[in-house]
């Protein structure tokens, strides 16, 4: 696709979460605007169970929710879920690729891997959200997002069930917004890239 193609998707939201993030995510997705004009890509650490999570999210979210498939094109207003056991990457042409290479920080899918590829694909058009978790995944991905001009929201560690993941990221950078769980959906709904 050409650089100046007007139909090319210019914005995207990526959300990374680990332990304690599911109960933040469910009400958050329920509160998303049904007319959201960009895709939302979610990477969660979890056990090898795909369908139940997809089902849970589907029931609550006003937007279509689906497991990300290899080489599918991103669509505005759709929520994509990284499948268990695969890294999920966003290509410059706005399609998705799966990758079963080594785990990164003991995780596959890795939040860092998705964040980094999204940073490069969307630059300032990217909004990243890092939620509760008990490890340090996502921190290095957020650095790439900062470098490429994307917007960063971190769940307030005082409000997170597991504060380690937000704290690890905060040790590396200051987010644009530090928010409690209930305020995140509205920030996503109002995201307009500069």
């Amino acid at each position: 696709m050409a650089e100046n193609d007007l139909s090319r998707i210019s914005q995207c939201a990526v959300i990374g979460g680990s332990a304690g993030s599911l109960k933040v995510l469910l009400p958050m997705l329920a509160a998303l605007d049904a007319r959201l004009a960009f895709p939302v890509v979610i990477v969660l650490h979890r056990k090898n169970d795909v369908s139940t999570l997809e089902q849970l999210l589907k029931e609550r979210c006003p937007l279509p929710v689906k497991e990300a498939e290899d080489k599918e094109d991103l669509r505005c207003g759709t929520v994509y879920l990284a499948p268990a056991g695969y890294h999920l990457l966003i290509e410059n042409d706005r399609s998705l690729s799966l990758d079963a290479s080594e785990k990164v920080l003991w995780s596959r899918p890795s939040i860092d891997v998705t964040f980094q590829s999204a940073a490069e694909a969307f630059g300032p058009g990217l909004l990243a959200v890092l939620l509760s978790g008990a490890n340090s995944d996502g921190a290095s991905g957020l650095e790439y997002i900062r470098y490429h001009g994307g917007r960063i929201i971190i769940q307030d560690p005082r409000n997170a069930e597991m504060s380690a993941m937000p704290l690890a990221a905060l040790a590396r950078l200051q987010p644009d917004l530090l928010l409690p769980d209930y305020a995140i959906a509205s920030a996503i709904n109002h995201f307009l890239a500069h």
Binding site: L89, I90, E91, N92, D99, S101
Partner: peptide
């Protein structure tokens, strides 16, 4: 090759 993952490698 899929660019994003090749680039990672």
């Amino acid at each position: 090759y899929a660019k994003a993952s090749l680039k990672r490698r």
